[in-house]
């Protein structure tokens, strides 16, 4: 076991543990913070797997932007005081069974995959090379994604409108 594999297992442990903590927290702020930790672990894993640009973007977008957005919403809605009804048995038992089933099936699929035991060699996709690759080969996808983000922006603006007035008019 060399340094890289040790790092991999360490990171995996951190990611899994923090994710497991995140999904079981009743306090939403705690959950979000644990998930940020998990995403940091993912970013380091990306770096280890030779994707430095993605690692940076993971930190900036996921950990930085998305999770902060979550935090804002949690604080803005002030849902702390809303008690989440703790999982009724008729919900979490099927969920647990399904999770187990998915885990078993997924692991079986992974273990029977041909060539699965092939060792990954270290390699790096330099950020500049990766960027020019994406813009040369996937320029159309980049355009589509930008369009998607624009539409999302428009949708969020529409949804976030203060329409209390309209609703109250309807109610009357």
């Amino acid at each position: 076991m060399n340094l890289y594999s040790a790092l991999f297992y360490l990171l995996s442990l951190v990611i899994l543990a923090s994710t497991a903590l995140a999904i079981t927290r009743r306090n939403l702020v705690h959950a979000v913070v644990y998930l940020v930790l998990s995403f940091f672990g993912s970013a380091l894993l990306f770096y280890l797997l030779g994707a430095p640009l993605l690692a940076a973007l993971e930190v900036i977008i996921y950990a930085g932007a998305i999770m902060i957005l979550f935090l804002f919403i949690v604080m803005m809605l002030n849902v702390e005081r809303l008690e989440e009804r703790f999982f009724p048995a008729r919900q979490w038992v099927p969920a647990a069974v399904l999770g187990l089933l998915l885990a078993v099936v997924g692991l079986l699929a992974v273990s029977t995959q041909p060539g699965g035991d092939r060792l990954l060699k270290t390699a790096v996709a330099a950020p500049s090379a990766f960027g020019s690759y994406v813009f040369q080969r996937h320029w159309l996808s980049v355009e589509i994604v930008s369009l998607l983000l624009l539409i999302a922006l428009a949708g969020v603006l529409f949804l976030g409108r203060d329409n209390d007035k309209g609703v109250s008019e309807e109610d009357r």
Binding site: S12, I15, G99, A103, G106, D117, L120, K121
Partner: peptide, 24 residues
């Protein structure tokens, strides 16, 4: 070399299962 490919996939699978449990 880092680790076998299947270990990465195992990690992804477990993470996915956690996501599903959280979602459901």
């Amino acid at each position: 070399s880092i680790v076998p490919y299947s270990h990465v996939m195992t990690l992804a699978t477990l993470l996915f299962v956690m996501g599903v449990v959280c979602l459901v």
